[in-house]
């Protein structure tokens, strides 16, 4: 559940979601659920040449299981807290 809690902190920030099919979508994180389904707002596709039809959809729901990476804004990450939380989670605590 670590990443669920963690991503919830990032709501309202700009993130880029890279899917396992290589599509990368940038947008404002609207919400995330326990399955790491991600809702983005005001999205745009990073490589528009490759995916012209995906051009700026307003709201977008991305299935958690197709997400490969979430690229985070640097100022949205407190490395120390994340580090601690990761270790706690690994310990099963």
């Amino acid at each position: 559940m670590l990443f669920f809690s963690y991503f919830k902190e990032l709501v309202g920030k700009e993130v880029t979601v890279e899917l396992k099919n290589d599509l990368a979508i940038r947008g404002t994180l609207h919400s995330v659920d326990q399955y790491l389904n991600i809702k983005l707002e005001n999205t745009r596709v990073v490589e528009q040449d490759k995916y012209p039809h995906m051009l700026s959809v307003k709201n977008c729901f991305i299935r958690g299981s197709v997400v490969r990476y979430v690229l985070l804004p640097p100022d949205g990450v407190d490395v120390d807290i994340l580090h601690d939380a990761t270790r706690r989670e690994a310990r099963g605590g």
Binding site: S56, V57, K58, C60, R63
Partner: peptide, 21 residues
Amino acid sequence: ISLHAVSRDPDAYQLPCIYAQ
């Protein structure tokens, strides 16, 4: 369904629609 979205940009598709991959 990998993703679904509301598409209103006429450059993406001429009519407003739900787009799904």
